[in-house]
């Protein structure tokens, strides 16, 4: 859009350009569950907004053959300043405490842990407000896609 700037149109462009930029900005305060569900569907992914088993409102989806959930944090009313991608597996032979520790030492982005039932979990936190954009959200999903695929392979999920 900015490359279309032409002489004589400067005043008009000064108004248009910020609107173009803000079209990619996330709303002030972050995202709602519905925003995220719409964004996922826009990417051709599934999105199910529902309550988890603790009654927390989450969005569930699937990527790279892995079911995952998106949790919402730092919320004011329905709008949330940070989100978390989370995926879990029932106990895995390679999901040992030593391997979990090695993942957290050597790999990036995803925090790995074992829960009380030795289920293997991987979580990735991102901040989406202030200063968040949909471009950032897209990049985070690509990051999650590649990292969670590695995670699955690493632990034999």
């Amino acid at each position: 859009m900015r490359t279309l700037v032409a002489s004589g149109a400067l005043a008009l462009i000064l108004f248009i350009a910020p609107q173009v930029a803000s079209a990619r900005d996330l709303p002030s305060g972050g995202v709602t569950r519905e925003d995220v569900a719409d964004w996922l569907r826009g990417r051709g992914m599934t999105a199910n907004v529902h309550n988890d088993d603790r009654g927390e409102r989450i969005v569930s989806s699937n990527i790279a053959g892995v079911n995952f959930d998106i949790y919402f944090y730092a919320c004011s009313q329905d709008r949330c300043a940070s989100i978390q991608y989370a995926a879990g597996w029932t106990p895995l032979a390679q999901g040992t405490q030593a391997n979990i520790n090695a993942w957290n030492k050597d790999k990036r982005y995803i925090r790995a842990y074992l829960d009380g039932s030795n289920n293997v979990w991987g979580e990735y936190d991102i901040d989406v407000s202030p200063g968040g954009t949909w471009e950032q959200m897209d990049a985070s999903m690509e990051r999650w896609r590649s990292q969670v695929a590695q995670f699955k392979s690493y632990f034999g999920g």
């Binding site: 901040d127 202030p130 200063g131 968040g132 954009t133 949909w134 950032q136 959200m137 897209d138």
Partner: peptide, 8 residues
């Protein structure tokens, strides 16, 4: 990057 700011 992409899509991030110094505020973020």
């Amino acid at each position: 990057a992409p899509g991030r700011t110094y505020d973020a």
